Computed example of a mutant assay.
Amino acid sequence: MAEKTLFITGASSGIGAETARQAVAKGWNVGLFARSADKLESLVEELGDKALALPGDATQVSEQQAAVETLAAHFGDVTAAFANAGRGASASGTLEGDAEDWQSMVNLNVMGVLWTAKAVAPYFQKNRGHLVLTGSAAGRTHIKGSVYSATKWFVHGYAGNLAEEFKEWGARVTVIAPGMVDTPFFDEAKPDKLKPEDIANSVLFALEADPRASVREIFVMPAN
């Protein structure tokens, strides 16, 4: 059986780290991309030789491309990617929002996703790979003045456009749209909301679907 290798951005904690754990448990190799080298190395120690730490900045296309090249050289190919890196804004609304903070968020939530797609597209054109993107319930509804929500609307729109492009190669694209998840994304714990493993379950469901099935979107909301 061919090796399955997954590139994950935002892999050092939360949804990204839990997806790496579940992927390795299902036989995948994983490339762990994030800025925190120490956290990545700790995760590699936990996961073993099927994991590779790839420290880097998701807002830099050259760093994502170099990381994907390193991952492909290490495991032989890159057959899937999870564009998961993202963050919220420091203040809500247009009036109170900070311009520099918006720019930084757009660089990660929008450009970072574009750079992941750009980095893996040459591989997927040849190997019929699969790109998964972290969208949000916030990208499926209108929230008063939310620039963060708007970045996730972009992710949902781009995912659909990518799916139309990638299907010409036999490659697939999925957007995962979670509601509130109890992750370090929030300053305070959200114990009654979704857990990172719930979203990781959705990612692996999409990745392991029969090749004849293109799972375009998975919308996951807390039960309460």
Score class of each variant (00 low, 15 high):
Leu40Ile: 08
Leu95Cys: 10
Leu52Cys: 11
Gln60Val: 15
Glu46Arg: 02
Val78Pro: 07
Ser104Met: 10
Ala34Lys: 12
Glu41Arg: 09
Phe124Asp: 08
Leu54Gly: 05
Ala89Thr: 13
Ala51Ile: 07
Thr134Tyr: 10
Leu47Cys: 11
Lys126Phe: 12
Phe124Pro: 00
Pro55Ile: 04
Ala51Phe: 06
Arg128Glu: 13
Glu96Lys: 14
Ala138Pro: 01
Ala34Thr: 11
Glu45Leu: 13
Gln65Ile: 10
Val120Glu: 09
Leu40Arg: 09
Ala85Glu: 12
Leu71Cys: 11
Pro122Ala: 10
Thr70Leu: 13
Ala73Gly: 15
Val120Tyr: 04
Val113Lys: 05
Leu108Arg: 02
Leu47Gly: 00
Asn84Thr: 01
Ala66Phe: 09
Met105Asn: 00
Asp38Cys: 00
Val44Tyr: 02
Ala66Tyr: 01
Ala72Tyr: 12
Gly135Thr: 13
Ser136Lys: 03
Gly93Tyr: 14
Glu96Ile: 07
Ser62Ile: 11
Phe82Lys: 04
Ala66Glu: 14
Gly56Met: 09
Ala34Phe: 11
Ser90Pro: 00
Gln103Ala: 14
Gln64His: 01
Ala121Gly: 03
Gly93Gln: 14
Val68Thr: 02
Glu63Ile: 00
Ala53Glu: 08
Gln64Ala: 14
Ala117Ser: 10
Ala119Lys: 07
Glu100Tyr: 03
Ser104Ala: 15
Leu95Ile: 02
Asp77Pro: 05
Pro55Arg: 09
Lys118Gln: 15
Val44Gln: 08
Ala58Met: 11
His74Asn: 15
Trp102Thr: 06
Ser90Thr: 15
Glu41His: 12
Leu108Gly: 12
Gln103Asp: 14
Ala66Leu: 11
Gly76Tyr: 03
Ala73Ile: 13
Thr94Val: 15
Thr116Val: 13
Gly97Asn: 07
Val110Asp: 00
Phe82Tyr: 14
Ala53Gly: 10
Met105Val: 00
Ala67Glu: 08
Ala99Leu: 15
Asp101Gly: 03
Ala53Thr: 09
Gly97Lys: 02
Gly139Arg: 05
Ala117Cys: 10
Phe82Ser: 01
Asp98Asn: 14
Asp98Leu: 12
Lys126Pro: 04
Gly139Asn: 05
Ala85Thr: 09
Asp57Phe: 05
Gln60Ser: 14
Leu52Asn: 07
Leu131Val: 12
Gly139Cys: 04
Thr94Cys: 14
Asp57Pro: 11
Gln60Pro: 00
Gly88Met: 12
Leu54Met: 08
Gly31Met: 05
Gly97Asp: 10
Leu114Gly: 02
Leu32Ile: 05
Thr79Gly: 01
Asn84His: 08
Gln64Tyr: 02
Ala67Pro: 03
Gly112Val: 01
Val61Asp: 12
Gln60Asp: 14
Gly97Met: 00
Ala37Phe: 03
Leu32Gln: 10
Val106Glu: 04
Pro55Asp: 01
